[in-house]
């Protein structure tokens, strides 16, 4: 979780990702941030997140992102 949080903070340093349960609805991330986030997650976890998994639901909060990473083969 620390690593995911660190990546999120690098993309949007002004936001607090520890309190929100829906990053998109709460306005912490927009669709362009998701692209940056996928790129960073791919690089940091040495995976390639499936294009079909790139939707708002899978990036709504820390738990969702963690599940997505596990599904795509990341070793957490």
């Amino acid at each position: 979780m620390e690593k995911i949080l660190s990546i999120l903070n690098s993309i949007r340093p002004e936001e607090d990702f520890t309190t929100s349960e829906d990053f998109i609805s709460d306005g912490l991330l927009d669709s362009f941030d998701l692209i940056s986030l996928v790129s960073e997650l791919d690089e940091n976890f040495s995976i390639s997140i499936d294009g079909m998994d790139i939707n708002q639901e899978n990036f709504k909060n820390l738990d969702a992102i963690k599940s997505l990473l596990i599904k795509n083969g990341a070793k957490l």
């Binding site: 993309i11 362009f32 941030d33 692209i35 940056s36 790129s39």
Partner: peptide, 14 residues
């Protein structure tokens, strides 16, 4: 209305 950080990242990724 990109932030500077977004712009640089999008340049690389997109």
């Amino acid at each position: 209305n990109f932030t500077k950080a977004q712009s640089m990242k999008l340049k690389m990724v997109m």
